[in-house]
């Protein structure tokens, strides 16, 4: 926890360059702030949660902590991920919550200068915009930065009607 407590000071705004873990969903690449990434592990069976949206795949036991697993593909409205042992879960920790993001794979760690990050255009992405924090043009493609705060803003199960 103490490591995380220092995060706001060393965040992207303090340094000109930030590092992102890039992961893949099909052909698309998504970037996750490396300072929020706690660990990367293989997919394991989850315990389903009742009354949860379909992109909440359930919870797992991460050394004694109960961690919800979110299907990033389903969260972006691109359909449920058909999980295999090759799928990867990126465990992220924000100031308030811990969660796992189910992705197809993790490909790289990239260092990006703050000015390289472009704003998300109003239209033209298939992902609900609030879930993206920016876009980084790369050779032969583009990395979309995931807005973890908005992503982890889980609906309180009580206020969401059961699916």
């Amino acid at each position: 926890m103490s490591v995380l407590a220092t995060r706001p000071d060393s965040g992207p705004s303090a340094t000109a360059e930030a590092q992102y873990v890039t992961c893949t969903l099909g052909d698309a690449e998504y970037g996750i702030d490396i300072l929020s990434v706690r660990e990367i592990k293989g997919w394991s069976e989850t315990t389903a949660l009742p009354h949860a949206p379909d992109w909440v795949r359930g919870v797992i036991n991460l050394r004694g902590t109960i961690v919800p697993i979110l299907d990033l593909r389903a969260r972006f409205g691109l359909g449920l991920t058909a999980t295999t042992a090759m799928h990867v879960v990126v465990i992220i920790q924000t100031a308030t919550r811990m969660a796992g993001l189910l992705v197809d794979g993790v490909s790289d760690i990239i260092a990006v200068a703050a000015e390289e990050v472009r704003a998300v255009p109003e239209i033209g992405t298939s992902v609900p915009e609030r879930l993206l924090a920016g876009l980084i043009p790369r050779e032969g493609g583009m990395v979309s930065l995931v807005s973890l705060d908005n992503l982890l803003n889980l609906p309180d199960a009580e206020t969401t009607p059961a699916q």
Partner: peptide
């Protein structure tokens, strides 16, 4: 174990 820290309250579920 509490579910509320990382997820939220689920009606009918007291914990995990």
């Amino acid at each position: 174990k509490s579910m509320e820290g990382n997820y939220g309250r689920i009606p009918g579920i007291g914990g995990a």
